[in-house]
């Protein structure tokens, strides 16, 4: 048996494969794709005016020295409605939130905000998903934490719930 160790190689490889499968089952892969821009210099982008009289979002005005949240949403996105109350509460605590509406229309955005409340200070319209691609966002809703220098420090994918508030606050606070 020990004279021909090579003969045991297939079994060892087979076992290795099955260990891999077992680990794969136990740790289901994350279906989400995290942004790769986290911690890096924010790429240049700008958005269009979404609501008359409200300043749109751009990489430039994200670098104005205030840490804040950037929420990627859309008026046609049902889950986005669910997180508005939580965002409103965050805003009431003095946290600045900018919104980017993707693949949307100004009239729909205005109606959406009128019906559900408006947690945003700036709102940008991005019909071609350019800003979304620039910050590495892959869907709606997503919420990014931006630090003083305008860098993304954290990305929250999906609806922001009550349970997510401490984490988001900590990330915001951690930006100094």
């Amino acid at each position: 048996m020990m004279r021909k160790p090579l003969l045991w190689l297939p079994m060892v490889l087979g076992l290795g494969l099955f260990v891999l499968f077992y680990l794969g089952l136990e740790n289901p892969g994350q279906r989400i794709i995290n942004s790769n821009v986290i911690g890096r210099e924010l790429p240049e982008f700008s958005t269009q005016v979404a609501v008359e009289g409200v300043e749109p979002v751009s990489s430039e005005n994200l670098r104005d020295g205030n840490p804040r949240l950037v929420n990627v949403f859309a008026s046609w996105c049902a889950p986005c409605i669910q997180e508005i109350p939580v965002l409103l509460r965050l805003r009431a605590q003095g946290i600045e939130i900018d919104g980017i509406a993707v693949h949307d229309r100004p009239a729909d955005i205005s109606r959406f905000l009128a019906e559900n409340g408006n947690p945003y200070r700036r709102i940008g319209l991005d019909n071609e998903g350019r800003s979304q691609l620039e910050i590495g966002s892959s869907g709606v809703p997503e919420t990014f934490v931006i630090d003083r220098e305008g860098r993304i420090v954290y990305q929250h994918i999906g609806i922001v719930t009550e349970q997510d508030i401490p984490e988001i606050l900590a990330r915001l606070g951690g930006t100094g």
Binding site: M1, K4, L7, W8, P10, M11, G14, L15, F18
Partner: peptide
Amino acid sequence: ICGALALFA
């Protein structure tokens, strides 16, 4: 499979 491979070895 591992049984068969062990038998093989």
